[in-house]
Design a protein around this nucleic acid. Structure first.
Lengths: 160, 160
DNA sequence: ACTGAAATGGCGCGACC
DNA sequence: GGTCGCGCCATTTCAGT
């Protein structure tokens, strides 16, 4: 489903829903200059195409005792395809790993891990990360502060 | 508002809403073993306490022509408080910077930037990032693949 | 004080123009 | 894309424990 299907109104809908996923369809319709029914039809189409993946509630990390963000660079022993898959499968098991990227260059992984404190991170390292087969080296970088965290993708580049 | 206020049911509510932010209150109530009225009251309390920050729609990056993730390490010239604030303010202006963390160690920043292609990233570098006052050095690392991306925080550590 | 049940007003969501 | 209408859900009120 290429971008050619996305017009100005769809872009407005997406921008609005990325800010407020619980907006009432009536209000959304008014905001984008449509009547409720065709607006809802567009939203459903965006959902069914997979363009809108899901709706979620965002929780404040500090208020649930999860103030520590750690970025972990992981290097694997060999770059065999099989190793990558098994590493990724293992990573997907761990709920404290919120993000994981396969990186270029040294061809390792970058993880963002969220934990209550340093002790919990040490536990994660010892009990889980170091036990994954094929892990050669691990480098941890700690965040002092989360300056910005957005889930809304910028859509300005999408042509009309 | 410490965690002592959060009981088992609240945890279930949060876990559920982090997976499906648009679930009907009736269904949520049934899922957590409550009747609709007290369930909704708890949700409202969690919202007003700020523990639930907001509800959002998550959009598929590839389907809106944003397949490129870049992690950018930024070092500032001097670690004056004022410089940090002005850098952070500048970063907040740029919608392609989805995440920004103040890091320990070399005490620089780590950014996650999302762009349509390498040309757009080059444009971002030249037009915006390098023009921010106080930026000493920039190191860009590109992601080949987003292996995992979660917004749901793990709540298993919260005691009953 | 917090929970569960009933009533009402508004909205989501389909059929049709 | 807009209009109409039904059914369901969110929300308030009231009673119970």
């Amino acid at each position: 489903m290429p971008k050619s299907q996305i017009d100005q109104i769809d872009r407005k809908i997406l921008t609005r829903l990325q800010k407020d996923g619980r907006i009432a369809n009536n209000d959304l319709a008014e905001a984008v200059g449509l009547s409720p029914s065709p607006c809802l039809r567009r939203v459903k189409a965006l959902e069914e195409s997979g363009l809108i993946r899901t709706y979620v509630a965002l929780v404040d990390p500090a208020m649930v005792e999860l103030p520590v963000n750690v970025f972990v660079s992981v290097t694997l022993e060999k770059q065999v395809e099989e190793r990558l898959d098994s590493f990724e499968a293992a990573i997907r098991q761990r709920p404290e790993v919120l993000e994981c990227y396969l990186m270029t260059g040294e061809a390792d992984y970058l993880l963002r891990v969220v934990v209550p404190d340093l002790a919990a991170y040490e536990q994660f390292l010892k009990t889980h990360l170091t036990r994954i087969a094929g892990v050669a080296s691990i480098k941890s970088s700690f965040a002092l502060k989360q300056v910005r965290y957005e889930t809304a993708l910028p859509l300005h580049h999408l042509a009309v």
